[in-house]
Design a protein around this nucleic acid. Structure first.
Lengths: 188, 188
DNA sequence: CCAAAACCTGAAGCTTTCTTCACATTGTGG
DNA sequence: CCACAATGTGAAGAAAGCTTCAGGTTTTGG
């Protein structure tokens, strides 16, 4: 489909030349369509980048929701590990795309996008944690916020450092350790 | 000083209008100088943004180094709390600037900048942790990497969610808890 | 006080990019 | 096979930005 080709081309250009070089002409060329076609699907360049990110975040949220449902009722330890695993995998299996998108959102008015995503995902994780067989939080939403902020933040920062495979494995392991240790502390 | 005015103007424009609207004309205008003057100090626009970030990261690294020296020889618990406190404060005391810079680096070829910063700071924190009165790591550099990645990542992610003051306080507290709990696990 | 250096000015050239629109091509239902 | 809708084309207009440079102003040091 044309739209799909345009999205793919956008990612390619973003990867190859960065956000500065992301021009309508270049995207259209790489997508194998004319500029006019692009404007039939997106009112302007910003809308294109916005749509690309929305699409990506939607897919990511959906994956997290699946994990949360799968883990419903499980003990907290496996739960948090599954969440880390899902998020980490989703971000790293196409690391190049993740990186490209991280850069492209920076110059968007992305607050609405980010918050909608955060709200949706928070709802899923909060519900999951509440359902844990050993759930007994003093403050569920606080614990949820701390966990997800630490996890998502760590993954993102791991991207900015060029870590070796070994370092990534170790870091992921340690993140799990930290989250489990934290949960042991905050459950009554 | 002129250069300082230009830097300040760059931040202002970045804050008010975002990276898209960061034009040489606008920066010069806001700085109260002519465009020509700007080009006497920076060979081009990118160099300006680069220099701004370099300057900021240098100051941040210096602050972290001070904390690391102050904490030399202390126990691990206070150490990691001091690191969190320093980093968090440095990032939040001028949250607007932090946000503006996070956005501006995105479209820089920032790898060199980021890695130089990471190396410098990692050296300081690794040395600090090694000096701890109760230091006894199986793998010092691994533990260091895990701690700093989690801490810096969490702070960054906290920025993207619009957290209330209460949530920030709680999150910081929980981050400290997590780091201490982690340290208790990895020290022999 | 003066000459040289340092610093500043901002209009204009050049380039690049976004966006439009009149027209061409392709697909579809009868 | 035809008429009509949907889709695609790409040259050109319009706007905006980066950078230069010839010349003005201020500072410095003797």
């Amino acid at each position: 489909m044309t739209v799909e080709a345009i999205f793919e081309a956008t990612i390619q250009v973003l990867l190859r030349d960065g956000m500065n070089a992301l021009t309508t002409t270049r995207v259209a060329e790489r997508a194998g369509v004319s500029v006019g076609t692009m404007y039939q699907y997106f009112p302007n360049k910003q809308a294109l980048v916005y749509a690309l990110n929305a699409r990506y975040l939607d897919a990511l949220a959906a994956r997290i929701e699946v994990t949360c449902q799968e883990q419903s009722g499980a003990p907290l330890g496996p739960m948090v590990e599954a969440l880390i695993e899902t998020y980490w995998t989703a971000k790293t299996e196409r690391a190049d795309i993740t990186q490209a998108l991280y850069r492209s959102v920076a110059e968007l008015n992305n607050d609405a996008l980010i918050h909608a995503f955060a709200d949706r995902v928070d709802r899923a994780t909060t519900e999951m944690f509440s359902s844990a067989s050993d759930a007994n939080f003093a403050d569920t939403s606080r614990t949820n916020l701390s966990l997800v902020t630490v996890i998502y933040g760590t993954v993102r920062n791991a991207f900015e450092r060029a870590l070796s495979e070994r370092e990534v494995t170790d870091l992921k392991q340690d993140l799990k350790t930290m989250c489990r240790a934290y949960l042991a502390n905050v459950t009554v």
